[in-house]
Nucleic acid binder design. Sequence first.
DNA 1: GTTCGGATAAACACGC
DNA 2: TGCGTGTTTATCCGAA
Length: 226
Amino acid sequence: MEKHTQALPPHSPLHSPRSDSEALSRSPSLPQPAAVQLTSFPSSRTTPASDLYSAPRASGGSHCLSPSTVSDQDDLTCLSWLHQRGNLLPLQPLPKITTLPQTLDPIPVQQLLSSTDKPPYSFSSLIFMAIEDSPEKRLPVKGIYQWIVDNFPYYREAPGGWRNSVRHNLSLSKSFQRIHRDKSQSVGKGSLWRVCPEYRPALLEVLRKTHYCHHTNSSLLNKRVL
DNA sequence: GTTCGGATAAACACGC
DNA sequence: TGCGTGTTTATCCGAA
C-alpha cells in the first residue's frame, strides 16, 4: 500500500504518543459545572437497578466508594449517578455549548431519543462505564463488549468494527490497564482490564460533561418544543 | 491553516 | 487451523 505521507502524521502515535491520555490527565483542572443534576435522569432500562445494585457488592466494593451522601453526589469520584441505568441511554450527538447555565431542568431522555441512536459517548467513556459498572471494577474485553451491547442497542446492530475500536482504545489509552491473569503473562485470551486510578477523575469528568451537555440540550429542547 | 482528539480500518502477532 | 485478543499503524473527520 502506498504511503501518502512523507513525514509522520501530526497525531501519529509515533509523533505524539499517548496524547489522548495526556489530555485526559490535564482535564481535572477544568472548571466544574455549577449544578450538574445527573441524578434526575430516568431510571432503569435493560436491567432493573434493584437487580444489579441492591445486592451487596464484593468485598471492598461499595460501588460509589462510600455511603451516599449529598456531598458524595457532588464528588468527582462518585459514580452513583452512573449506576442509575437510565443514565446510560443512547443519546444524540452533543450540542455545542460554550457557556454552562447555572440551573438545569432535565427531562427524561427517552422521550426525545430513539434507542438506536448512536451514543454520544466516546469509546473511552463506554469502556470506563463498563468497567466501573462491574462489581470487581475489572472486565475482560468480552465483558466490555457485552456491557456495551446490553446498554446501547445501537451497537447491537452496528457492524463489528466498533469492537476493534474498543480494543484499539484499550491498547492505546493510558487510562486503562491490562491485568494479567495468574499464569498467562503473555498476550492471549482472557486478560482483564481496569481503569487506572490516576486517570479515573479525568474520565469521570469527561463523562459528566457529556451527560451535562446532553442534559442541557434536552432541557432547552423541552422548553422550546413542548 | 494547524493541531488535536476520536473513530475507523487494517495488518499482524500471539495464545487457546 | 480458526478465532479471539492485543498492538500498532494509517487515515479521515470534526472541533478548537
